[in-house]
Amino acid sequence: MSDEREAFPLLFRVDAADIEPYGNRDLWPSSGPNRPSNGEKFIIAMSYGFKMNVRMELKKPDPSFQVRGEYFKDDEKALLYSVAVSSEVNLDVVLDGKRVAEIAEAYAHGGLTLLAQKLAEAPRGTLWDDLEAEILELAPVTSDIEEPPTADRGTF
């Protein structure tokens, strides 16, 4: 019987064309101590690719740049599996680590290509402002966020 650990892929490949975008500081602006790791960038690219429904098979995987699966956190694993399941519309895919990796790689490649394209088109420094707006639009509205009081409330 194989458990989740065995089913989970240990390595995720990256296309040679993505090496530059992974290292591009304009694409990943962060000036402080918490710079995103390659794994985090991979997950964001994959999620974005999934959201935009752009899945590109790797043309030329670069063996010098791989994302190691054992460093993914639980929430990131949730995304990897969900994307694979949703993509195949089949829960059984979770038992096939290799397939989960292939799906994630294809979406990450597609997502990163889109992001790089968006970066090139957007005015400098505005990419993540646009993305943040999209994120906040998509984010579920929670009931415990207080609405600002209206001006006419409580008047005589």
Binding site: Y48, K51, L79, S86
Partner: peptide, 8 residues
Amino acid sequence: GHVFAEPA
């Protein structure tokens, strides 16, 4: 990452 993959 969370929001974009939320439908999945």
